[in-house]
Amino acid sequence: MQNTCESLLTESLSEALETMAFIMVMPPAEEPAAPQEAVQVTMQFTGPKSGTVELMAGKDFLIAMAANVLGVDPGEEEAQAKGVDAFREILNTTCGVLLPKLASSPADVFNVTLPEDESFVGPEHWHKFVSQEGAVVLDADGSPLACRLVIR
């Protein structure tokens, strides 16, 4: 079950990132270095199944992702300002792709919370996140990206 959850989440996150931000994700060839400044975004869902989806990545990746989504240069102020917002939207979209895969029928209705974000300085939060059961670390165009699905 855990492996199924991990692969469903990874597939959903890949689809969201590839479609919205033109970013490919794959398993890392080696353990990536922990980002010094990281952001975690979290959404909860209730319905036929209830749980939480969490993503964590470094701030540099968020800016690069926002730049891709917005079609601007990563150095532009708009990309710098919208990194966290873009990450929240990628989580929202990931949940939108994931939840129908957890449903038993297309008629199933899920309620979701708004995405919440939290910023961290120092690598310990990254290490703590990725050491949790169900956490998956991915290589997103050369940057570390971690995700986790918890079903209650």
Partner: peptide, 9 residues
Amino acid sequence: VSTEASQTR
């Protein structure tokens, strides 16, 4: 324009 996918909704 939403992530909503439930046929019911």
